[in-house]
């Protein structure tokens, strides 16, 4: 018991994590039953997906439960892998090799601001310093052919994979008291907020998919993402708001009303993140962003929604509570 009490997370969070593992166990049993007595190829994709979920949830749990520094390093690593996937997927110029090197260097620096809890620097470092420095560095290379495309794609990639995602990490270091008063707004660890964000985002992905498959019906934007239907979108929003209602009051400073609103916001912004990365893939004529995660595709395929939900959920919370 002593060990558990020493972890930097509230007890509520541990129960919530146990709940996720219970849910995953149920899902695994269902898929195993679906596959019983069938060919090994039957529902193979689904099986790989479930297996990958076990790995992802276990790694994520480990990363957020052990200590805060590890959690920040872990999220920095996710940013690095996502940026690498992005830069390997898009057209780049020979002349820009060293410019890309500097783009990678922005990752440890950005996550250092998170670690230091330096909000002012965290919020301007990429949009001001990095976005102004990289074009300058690119100009020094002297190659003007394709300059606009090169700097545009690079800045946008950093925005998605580093700046957006680092907001998830900043949830960990939000102060425990409100700025104007000394009243504790939330005396629990930021790990619970991070967990809530990631759980609601990923749950929404799954819920949108399941509702879409169950009901079908008219599509939202068939040109970008043929699988997305209105039924999936609205069903996902309803389910995610419901889950948020049930969990957020225990894991965050939010009231019931705000919890439901946060769920709906996460659902809506997750959808945008998803179709934005889909549009990139369509443009590049690739199906997946990679094959790092069996059954899911690349890392960016898995965290596409998070590129929108992380900053939006963060600023929603920060505006109202911190």
């Amino acid at each position: 018991m002593n060990f558990i009490q020493n972890l930097p997370v509230p007890e509520n969070l541990l129960y919530a994590i146990a709940g996720v593992f219970a849910l995953l166990t149920v899902a695994t049993v269902i898929v195993a039953i679906m596959r019983r007595g069938k060919e090994p190829e039957d529902h193979l994709e689904l099986w790989l997906r479930v297996k990958s979920w076990w790995y992802m949830i276990s790694i994520f749990t480990f990363a957020i439960v052990i200590n805060r520094t590890l959690s920040i390093v872990f999220l920095g690593l996710i940013s690095f892998l996502a940026l690498k996937e992005y830069l390997s997927m898009i057209p780049t110029r020979r002349a820009d090799r060293r410019v890309l090197f500097w783009a990678y260097i922005a990752i440890p620096i950005q996550y250092y601001w998170v670690y230091a809890g330096w909000y002012g620097m965290f919020i301007i470092f990429i949009p001001i310093w990095v976005f102004l420095f990289l074009p300058f560095r690119m100009v020094l290379q002297g190659e003007t052919q394709g300059f606009l495309r090169a700097i545009g794609t690079l800045n946008w990639g950093l925005m998605m994979t580093v700046f957006s995602l680092s907001h998830a990490a900043f949830l960990l270091v939000l102060p425990e008291t409100a700025l104007s008063t000394d009243y504790p707004v939330f005396d629990k660890s930021g790990a619970a907020l991070l967990f809530l964000l990631v759980l609601l985002t990923q749950f929404n992905d799954v819920a949108q998919y399941v509702w879409g498959r169950l009901i079908g019906g008219p599509k939202i934007i068939p040109k970008v993402s043929p699988g997305k239907t209105w039924a999936g979108f609205l069903g996902g929003m309803f389910s995610t708001a419901l889950l948020s209602l049930a969990l957020a009051p225990y894991l965050s400073p939010m009231s019931l009303l705000m919890a439901g609103l946060a769920g709906a916001i996460i659902s809506f912004s997750g959808f945008i993140g998803d179709v934005t990365i889909s549009a990139v893939k369509r443009d590049l004529r690739v199906k997946d962003t990679g094959n790092t995660i069996p059954g899911h595709g690349g890392l960016l395929d898995r965290i596409d929604s998070l590129t929108y939900t992380a900053p939006i959920f963060f600023h929603f919370l920060r505006y109202f509570y911190y």
Binding site: K84, L87, S88, R97, L100, F101
Partner: peptide
């Protein structure tokens, strides 16, 4: 890491 370059840049 092409020939003649000392700086490694991550790519898949």
């Amino acid at each position: 890491l092409p020939r003649g370059e000392a700086v490694f840049v991550p790519f898949f």
